[in-house]
């Protein structure tokens, strides 16, 4: 059975890739399995300069999910290009770099720096991180800002650009249209939902940043709904994500309209989540009457 999927700039042997921020730059999980098994790898966000992130605690477990407020900690885009990306060179798996910033200029700088690297195949434009004070999510909640930053990053980069949308908006289709108008090659959706958890004994939020991004199975129905809505309104490739734990979940995202999927939180519970899902995918597709991944994409819209 063919699991292959073609997306702008990406020839994927299967549609499953680890999500940004849940896989570092690949080294740690390469101890558990051969990264060649993956469809692609989305590496951790890069900013213009090194970022040191938020105070701890940065994570909290919730019912069917988790909150995180890491704060985009990363060594800066130049260090990532020089010291992190070369590790992934020997693998036959396309790498998608995640671009973050506080200003349009910073996004452009990161995209330009990544443009010099031959170790990547596409960019994921992160306009949706809810955990940093400046930048990030405001670009993801205002269609005009989203359009501007997408346009400028497209101009600065020769790589295809997938814009990662925030679910913390009332009209996801308007955001999708705005970035598509600005030339986005694809969408990546959804990022985390802003949430909070309060410790009863301490009478204060568990996460030092107070709020964090909710991920995991708790947000899957929201991701499915948003992808479904965008797919109805627009013809643009989508990398779907939000609480994927099983091959059945992957199929649900495909039916909603995703062309490929990213697995995030599940990696923390099970370091082998991605290869196990990939292994189970052919059987699951067959069980529901599909002969390939391509055949299942968008099939939730007929009927």
């Amino acid at each position: 059975m063919s699991l292959a999927v073609q997306l702008p700039g990406l020839e994927l042997k299967n549609p499953v890739m680890p999500a940004s921020g849940c896989f570092g730059f690949g080294k740690e999980y390469s101890q558990f399995y051969d990264l060649d098994k993956l469809g692609a790898i989305i590496v951790k966000a890069a900013t213009g300069e090194a970022r040191y992130g938020n105070p701890t605690p940065r994570v909290a477990e919730t019912e069917s999910g988790m909150l995180n407020a890491i704060g985009l900690q990363n060594p800066g885009v130049e260090t990532i290009v020089k010291e992190e990306l070369p590790f992934l060179r020997p693998f036959h798996t396309p790498v998608i770099a995640n671009v973050a910033g506080s200003t349009v200029e910073e996004y452009v700088y990161v995209a330009k720096t990544l443009n010099k690297s031959d170790d990547i195949s596409a960019l994921e434009l992160n306009i949706s991180c809810p955990n940093v004070k400046e930048g990030g999510v405001q670009f993801g909640t205002d269609p005009e800002l989203a359009k501007e930053v997408t346009y400028k990053v497209k101009e600065a980069s020769d790589y295809p650009v997938y814009v990662k949308l925030s679910p913390n908006v009332s009209n996801i289709t308007a955001m999708a249209k705005a970035v598509a108008d600005a030339g986005a090659d694809g969408l990546s959706m959804i990022n985390t939902l802003t949430g909070m958890q309060i410790n009863l004994k301490q009478r204060k939020p568990i996460i030092a940043n107070q709020t964090g991004g909710l991920s995991g199975p708790a947000i899957k129905p929201i991701a499915i709904r948003m992808i479904y809505e965008v797919k109805q309104a627009l013809d643009i490739p989508i990398i779907g994500m939000g609480g994927i734990m099983t091959a059945e979940d992957v199929l649900e995202f495909l039916l909603a309209g995703a062309n490929a999927v990213a697995v995030g939180t599940a990696n923390f519970q099970n370091p082998l989540a991605c290869p196990e899902i990939i292994q189970q995918l052919p059987e699951t597709l067959k069980k529901y009457g599909f002969r390939s991944v391509e055949e299942a994409i968008g099939k939730g819209h007929e009927g």
């Binding site: 921020g21 101890q31 992130g53 605690p57 940065r58 994570v59 995180n68 990696n267 923390f268």
Partner: peptide, 29 residues
């Protein structure tokens, strides 16, 4: 510390360094 992945990928459990408090190390790794 509260950990996410426990293997060094997620940057949840960091601790600042004395020589430069802006920099940190991962408690899990």
């Amino acid at each position: 510390e509260r950990m996410g992945c426990g293997v060094g990928t997620c940057y949840a459990c960091v601790i600042p360094l004395r020589e430069n408090p802006k920099q940190s190390k991962k408690i899990c790794k």
